[in-house]
Design a protein around this nucleic acid. Structure first.
Lengths: 142, 142
DNA sequence: TTTTTTCCCAGTATATCAGTATGTTGATAT
DNA sequence: ATATCAACATACTGATATACTGGGAAAAAA
């Protein structure tokens, strides 16, 4: 199993791409799709969620496209991933299925800790951090 | 998506159950299945992998069952989860698909850091740690 | 040799992922 | 007005994985 699907990964790549190519103009999805080598049609479904969650704004027609609704340093990676994946919970028993064995469960605290660890890591980066090319700043928490 | 499926979760519960009920005898899967309220048939497939990886030993026939092949403090949770899940990699591009955009990828280091964070957490616990009932010791790394 | 319990192989329903296809709405330029 | 451009909307599809179930064979003990 995998925690993060293409939706989350592509969403981040789109946001970074837009941040790197941001002027005053709207950016066409077609251009992003070409640069990132991702199907434009598939990106539509991803970008749609980013728009409805006020991370991007869209404009139709000629000269239209998408624009960041926030500055890159205001976009928290954890927020983007939770939005795209629905949740970053590493196990089902932390969300959809509150299992009935909670009282006797020896593993629950372990999962809570894992969840918290992931959350802290993902929330400690913004899109601005990901734009860095020198690969510094990614020292995970010791 | 979810990082850990029932295979990983059930495997841990089986190991903790066995550690808590361990004497000199082999423990029947039927008993574990009843205590844990998990289908015995499904547990078979899980336990099979634990046996072939020397975490458990099995014995057939009357008086048979399963036994821990190591002491609980020798069984690292991360090892069990990696075994059952195949991998704990949070994204596909860290394993099956070494993506061709590595050189230009702005997100790769972020994923590496997440992977490492998860690995460190999971490897910092043993089955013996999970047996504790006081819920202490699960302070995730600050 | 019968019972017990692990071991082995195969199949199945459901869901999710990753993507495609077809069209509609709205903004701008001519 | 109307043609064009690009976002927006809906529906569908193939592949894969999860979470099981079922039937039986092998081995160990009574």
């Amino acid at each position: 199993m995998m925690l993060i699907s293409t939706k989350g990964r592509y969403a981040l790549r789109v946001l970074i791409d837009m941040a790197e190519h941001s002027g005053n103009d709207y950016i066409k999805l077609k251009d992003i799709a070409e640069r990132q080598e991702i199907s434009e049609k598939y990106l539509e479904s991803i970008v749609k969620q980013l728009v409805s969650n006020k991370i991007l704004t869209g404009l139709r027609g000629k000269g239209g496209g998408y624009k960041l609704a926030k500055t890159p340093d205001e976009i928290v990676v954890g927020d983007v991933l939770r939005l795209m994946e629905g949740s970053l919970a590493p196990v089902a028993c932390l969300e959809d299925k509150p299992c009935p064995r909670v009282a006797e469960c020896r593993t629950l605290e372990f999962w809570r800790g894992l969840d918290e660890t992931i959350r802290r890591y993902a929330d400690s980066f913004t899109v601005a951090d990901l734009m860095r090319t020198d690969n510094a700043g990614f020292d995970y928490i010791i």
